[in-house]
């Protein structure tokens, strides 16, 4: 059974975009151990993206390759959650500049990895054996990412007054973006219909429980949702993705015929 390409791209784009973001801390972390930890997260995510792009490229045939998919598609062709493309700071327009905020990084990694442990766990049973194998490997990595980010969420929430305020602000900023997890895109719909994808909606109670429990332990409050539901996974992104891709793709696109 083969998986709809758009669904593979959704999973791959999530991984590459968040991998790119996590790597931005390399050399700038709050403590050397965290530079290494976030580099690890990034490496795992880029590894996942490569496997998923390779699988998609194989199915697409022709001259498709993992790098063509990562480097030569434009922002509107990316299928990642909007949450993952945001810079490491509070709500500001695309061309605003601000310092990276570790709380934002941690909260985002937590919210996403809490989802992905559930997603990868279920995808291990995908009728697409290739995807199931990627899911089994990715599940172990996502569990580590969840562990790491949850530990820090609790430390920051129940740390100092300043860290509590910062991490609460990050939760308030990022939580609304998770609403996108629960809508069904056409790619997700057809993957479910084909028996290779999963119904994400069904994961919501488990995700809610995981998030609520961690927030409580961190002495944080969960904001009520109201507002805009993002649609990055169908290609309608924030202003931030084209900056991220502009940087990521610049060298590859300057030398389109080169191999590296």
């Amino acid at each position: 059974m083969s998986t709809p390409i758009d669904y593979l791209l959704h999973l791959a784009d999530n991984a590459v975009v968040l991998g790119q973001r996590n790597a931005e801390w390399c050399g700038h972390g709050p403590i050397l151990e965290e530079d290494l930890a976030l580099a690890n997260v990034s490496l795992d995510l880029i590894g996942q993206a490569r496997l998923l792009y390779q699988r998609a490229a194989e199915m697409m045939g022709g001259d498709a390759t993992e790098d063509k998919l990562a480097y030569f598609r434009d922002a509107h062709q990316f299928r990642n959650y909007t949450l993952l493309e945001l810079p490491h700071h509070g709500p500001l327009v695309g061309y605003a500049a601000a310092d990276r905020d570790y709380a934002t990084t941690i909260v985002r990694n937590f919210l996403y990895s809490a989802l992905m442990v559930l997603v990868w766990d279920k995808l291990q049973q995908s009728k697409d054996a290739g995807l199931a194998a990627i899911a089994a490997k990715s599940l172990k990595e996502a569990s580590y990412h969840l562990h790491h980010s949850r530990d820090w969420l609790v430390r920051l929430g129940d740390g100092t007054e300043e860290s509590h305020a910062r991490v609460q602000a990050a939760v308030n900023h990022l939580m609304p973006y998770t609403e996108e997890f629960w809508t069904t895109s056409p790619a997700e719909g057809s993957a479910v219909a084909a028996g290779v994808g999963i119904d994400v909606w069904a994961l919501r109670p488990d995700w809610d429980a995981m998030v609520n429990e961690a927030l409580e332990e961190a002495t944080l409050t969960r904001p009520n949702f109201h507002g805009y539901v993002t649609e990055g996974k169908i290609g309608l992104h924030s202003e931030h993705l084209s900056y991220l891709l502009g940087e990521m793709q610049t060298l590859a696109r300057a030398h389109p015929n080169a191999t590296w």
Partner: peptide, 17 residues
């Protein structure tokens, strides 16, 4: 952030790490 392929990006992150 600008590594020209995903493989080279992974190698570089691992090296810097």
């Amino acid at each position: 952030s600008r590594a020209p392929s995903l493989k080279r990006k992974a190698i570089l992150i691992a090296k810097v790490q």
